[in-house]
Every structure is written in structure tokens, then in C-alpha cells.
């Protein structure tokens, strides 16, 4: 342990982790600071910024929209993603690999292009903008995560057990509920939580497809352009807690080790 700590290569990784964590920790730290400016010295400790945010009706309506959107996205992508993973496991491994990469393409493109393509398309077919259009837009790039996580879990599973259940007369649904689901449950939940965190985190696609109203991310976008006081830090901390909380639970239930 100690000799590994002294290696320069370990120090490199530690520095990278510090680089990744520090900005996020600073936002959380300054959300409790008395000082009007986000800089040292931060003054005393206060909960005033949170009080201000929690007394603000717009915050609650944005939070409500966010919960509705990302909750639906999590559930919907859990369904389409799990069904896809169950289907792809029946195909040849190479075909399944190509299918998974293809369905993951939306993650490679800049969100700006996806958002604008959807906006143009929605307005051409006359689809009204709102929660539904945002949910549909998010679904296309959250389902690949569920597919990848669940498919990876199913690959480790012994498929003979499912076939045995089917041979003994179980319907496909019974076989799924009694054999497959107990094995895959954790990864389905984990995938859905990652999908929710992704949905919550997105700003660009939401901004173009929401129309009116606010989610937490479009709310913070508005604040970034009008205010500079630490209420932004408080809203930011709420977002960080929600996304990181979901990611942490997801990593824990799936026992992610890479």
C-alpha cells in the first residue's frame, strides 16, 4: 500500500481525481458561504442562499418538471433498454455488438445537433413543445446506457436456466420473472438511475425542445445570465446532490468495478 502511494504514476491519478472533484466541491462549499462574491475569504457559514432558493416558487415548479421528466425517462428507457438487451442476447455476439454500438450513436453527436434536428423536425410535423417532446428527445440517448449495462449482466448469466424453465412449461413472462429478473434486477435499476441522471444533467437538448417553463438546468441557465450571487451555488448543489446521488446508488447496486 505505502510503496504504491509513493509511485509517481499513482500521484498522477490522484491529481486527475483532484482536478475532477475540486470545482464541484467548491460549488458546494460556497453555497454555504456568507460572502456575496464566490471567492475567498468566504465569510461565515450560512443557509441563507438555500432559504432564498426554497422560498422561490420558480425553483419548485422547475424541480417538479425535472422530476416528472427524468422519472419518466428513467422508467421508459428501463423498459425499452431491458427489452432490447433481452432480445440482443439471443442474437450472435457480433450482431449484438454492432446493434449496441449503432443504438449508442446519439451519445457521440454534439447535443446541439440533436437538439436542433429535433426542434426542426417537431416544428415541421407540428408537434407541440413541452414535457413529452423533451422526454422523447432524452429517451434516444439514455436507452443505450440501460442496454449496455443490462446486456453486460445477461452475458454473464447461464442461459440454460431460462431454457430449462421454458422446457418445464413456463411462459416467457414467467421465465423472465422467476429466472432472468432476479439476476438482472440490479443492473436494470442501475441503468435506469444513470438514465435519470443523464436526463437531469442535460441542458442543450432540453433547452431546444421544452418550449415554455423550466427544468432545473434551464432555470440555472437563466440565473447564470442574470444573477451572480451564491443562490446559483445553492441550486447547483441541489443538482449535484441529485445527479451524484443517483450515480452513486447506480454504481453501488450494479457493483460497478469497470
Amino acid at each position: 500500500m505505502i510503496d504504491r502511494l509513493l509511485r509517481p504514476s499513482t500521484w498522477f491519478a490522484v491529481l486527475v481525481a483532484i482536478f475532477l472533484l475540486t470545482p464541484i466541491l467548491l460549488v458546494v462549499l460556497f453555497s454555504f458561504g456568507k460572502n456575496q462574491l464566490t471567492t475567498f475569504p468566504m465569510g461565515g457559514v450560512t443557509l441563507d442562499w438555500y432559504r432564498e432558493v426554497f422560498d422561490w416558487p420558480q425553483f419548485w415548479s422547475a424541480l417538479k418538471t425535472t422530476v416528472a421528466v427524468s422519472g419518466t425517462v428513467g422508467l421508459a428507457s428501463a423498459i425499452t433498454g431491458t427489452l432490447a438487451a433481452l432480445g440482443l442476447i439471443k442474437l450472435k455476439e457480433k450482431t449484438a455488438g454492432v446493434a449496441i454500438s449503432t443504438l449508442g450513436l446519439p451519445l457521440m453527436l454534439p447535443p446541439l445537433v440533436i437538439g436542433l434536428a429535433l426542434l426542426t423536425c417537431y416544428s415541421l410535423i407540428g408537434m407541440p413543445l413541452g414535457r413529452i417532446s423533451v422526454i422523447l428527445a432524452h429517451l434516444v440517448y439514455t436507452q443505450p446506457f440501460v442496454i449496455a449495462v443490462v446486456h453486460a449482466r445477461l452475458r454473464q448469466m447461464d442461459y440454460a436456466a431460462v431454457e430449462a424453465a421454458r422446457d418445464c412449461g413456463a411462459t416467457p413472462l414467467q421465465a423472465f420473472m422467476t429466472v432472468t429478473l432476479p439476476v438482472a434486477r440490479a443492473s436494470i435499476i442501475g441503468g435506469a438511475l444513470i438514465a435519470m441522471a443523464l436526463s437531469l444533467d442535460d441542458f442543450v437538448i432540453t433547452f431546444f425542445t421544452l418550449g415554455g417553463g423550466n427544468t432545473l438546468s434551464t432555470l440555472i441557465w437563466g440565473m447564470l445570465r442574470t444573477t451572480i450571487d451564491p443562490t446559483i451555488n445553492a441550486v447547483g448543489t441541489v443538482i449535484i446532490c441529485l445527479t451524484i446521488g443517483m450515480t452513486a446508488i447506480a454504481l453501488w447496486v450494479t457493483r460497478y468495478r469497470g
Binding site: T10, L21, A197, L200, D201, I239, I244
Partner: peptide
């Protein structure tokens, strides 16, 4: 190379995966 520290460091990195896109940009601004 990191041995037992590896999983901890990986967890710390993945922790920041979805820490708010706009929040991160705002953090760098400050």
C-alpha cells in the same frame, strides 16, 4: 499500477460523471 487504491480513484472519477454540465461550467467561471 494503483493496486487497491484503483477502485477508490475510479469511483471518485465516476462520481463526477453527471455533476451538472452547467454547474461545472459555472464552477470554472468562479
Amino acid at each position: 499500477r494503483a493496486g487497491k487504491l484503483g477502485p477508490l480513484l475510479l469511483f471518485m472519477a465516476l462520481f463526477t460523471l453527471f455533476g451538472g454540465y452547467l454547474v461545472k461550467i459555472y464552477a470554472w467561471k468562479t
